[in-house]
Design a protein around this nucleic acid. Sequence first.
DNA 1: CCGGTTAAGCAAATCGGTTAACAATCGCGG
DNA 2: CCGCGATTGTTAACCGATTTGCTTAACCGG
Lengths: 351, 351
Amino acid sequence: MRPTMRDIALRAGVSKTTVSFAINDPSRISEATYARVMAVVAELGYVPDPVARTLTTKRLGALGLLLPQPIHEALRNPYLCEIIRGIGRVCEEKELSLTMIPPIKGRIVEAARRAFVDGLITVGLGPDHEAVEFLRKRHIPFATIDGLESGMAYNVGIDDEKAACGLMRYILERGHRNLAILSLMPNALSPPEEGLSPVRDRRLAGFSRALSGIGLSLGSAGIRVIACEASFGAGERAISLLLAGAREGLSAIVAMSDAVALGACFACKRLGMSIPRDMSVAGFDDIPDALLAEPPLTTVRQPGVEKGAAAATTVLTLLAGGRAEHCLLETELLVRGSVGDPSPLGAGGRA
Amino acid sequence: MRPTMRDIALRAGVSKTTVSFAINDPSRISEATYARVMAVVAELGYVPDPVARTLTTKRLGALGLLLPQPIHEALRNPYLCEIIRGIGRVCEEKELSLTMIPPIKGRIVEAARRAFVDGLITVGLGPDHEAVEFLRKRHIPFATIDGLESGMAYNVGIDDEKAACGLMRYILERGHRNLAILSLMPNALSPPEEGLSPVRDRRLAGFSRALSGIGLSLGSAGIRVIACEASFGAGERAISLLLAGAREGLSAIVAMSDAVALGACFACKRLGMSIPRDMSVAGFDDIPDALLAEPPLTTVRQPGVEKGAAAATTVLTLLAGGRAEHCLLETELLVRGSVGDPSPLGAGGRA
DNA sequence: CCGGTTAAGCAAATCGGTTAACAATCGCGG
DNA sequence: CCGCGATTGTTAACCGATTTGCTTAACCGG
């Protein structure tokens, strides 16, 4: 069995306290004793049990990320990876580890309960989500990413409404009137009580505002809103399915995530279409692949890494007893090659 | 402050023991008492402290992944993401969380020390790595991925030598004689004592064997071996640098990872070359992007997700006291579009 | 009415550390 | 040679749970 402090103390002929001092504060004991204790420590290969230590110090040395989906799916989402990388960068600096906490039995709050961490970060959860409520009640330091700004939780995000509106305006300015909007799922794995995605709602609102600028709405003819999981595969399937039916003049696809948009591109290409000649596609996030795609994807850049880093910093501030605040990051419309003019083909197909 | 078991006991007018029973084994107490206790539990929002519980139960409910690099860099590596996804899938099933543990002060073993986990998984560490030795000494259940098969640790991997040899044979059969091999760094962040990468060494051995089949070696004229971090950016830089000098007849680039290969492709394209007409590129791993690239990347598929899952399963087996064994997974040469015949241009340049 | 089960609840030990409070020893100035 | 502070080490309480025995009371058949 693994040696404990008692074993060391016994073998070195000192008390547990002395061993503890040798390890945590050598200045408290004589050099000779220190040497003797450490010799035994080395001999038995003793390492203090981090768990036991935690009981009194109250520090685990870990930050937790409450994932909205199973790890297996979450890491397929490049945008989420960016966020994790940002959190990781901060953890790195503070010598913390990062625990990814998937929902248990589909419930995030259940996962939050058993978390072995000093602080938590959530993604996509509004202030009335049961998990957020739980964290507040338990006074666990935490920050939300892509949640809602409220008195209930410190949030890190962007102005989704404005960004989405800007993107849609651009699409409309290019002349597109016949669109498929690939929205997000309410929440990948959510039973109703898990609450809806604040991000999705605000982006839809942004789209809506842009549309209303030219007298259209999300319900207008020619505007389809399709809920779609945030993954390449989901985007591909959604568009394949859509185009398998009548194309009905569709000239542009606007997705709420780049992963979905790239999936859509893939589906289009497989059907022999050329982008942006036969179909325009726009995304959201600016994941690394967006730039590498051919043509490079027109999208809204949002700083994923910075989001993660800001959230982690917020949690650490809270942990240190400091006063935190909401954080709103900048976005930018990146006009690249995937959006063109409405194709004559598309227009023709409509008739 | 967060309520403890004592608080509940006091308020419910029972002993701590009774509260513990109410939570862990209600059958041990009367229904009336159970109800009373749980009412107080609900009222105060009590949740047992997982850390304290662990002290006696010895189960943390978490698996740890010892990363060879900081999280920030590690997650940029799609292949590593695949591995993590595989581990995640297993964690999911067992309701465990997954802790990503970056090196501390550049030392993996230091990170292993403070890990709050039931079992660990390492990536790319040989049996003589100090971290692996530490884990053995401490009898922590663990498995290595891409390590070496040995009596010291259960390993999950592929036959790197054979796979690399197969890939190189194919390249040589297509007629290429003037190559750049993008090898891996000894280890992204390793001081010498961190040990070299077993994977790299065996793949080089495989390349070497294939080359020797036609009378060449890694040291022959026309064969360059360039160490390169396992990332898109590193591959891009390495090739940009290489091609900035004289091209010297180079007709093919063989990388040890797809990320690097894709970076190399990008660099080539930016210089106006067409793949595979002007330059052939082959990778290793078969990450999702490999198939999506244009042209799709010729590569060696190795099952990243399965690797992770197998390693996690191994650790769980060990944890349950069972007997584990090494796991050697299958690879497959995927001939796609990125490798062609040596270009006349390349051949000409050599003169 | 009695001995023997069973059920319900509790006190105390334990897990492996940290830390406050205190005791013993030493050195040194006065 | 006394007394005081600094140095070194120890004892014991504590962190928040689990778990082993033990006690008490209720119940049951004979």
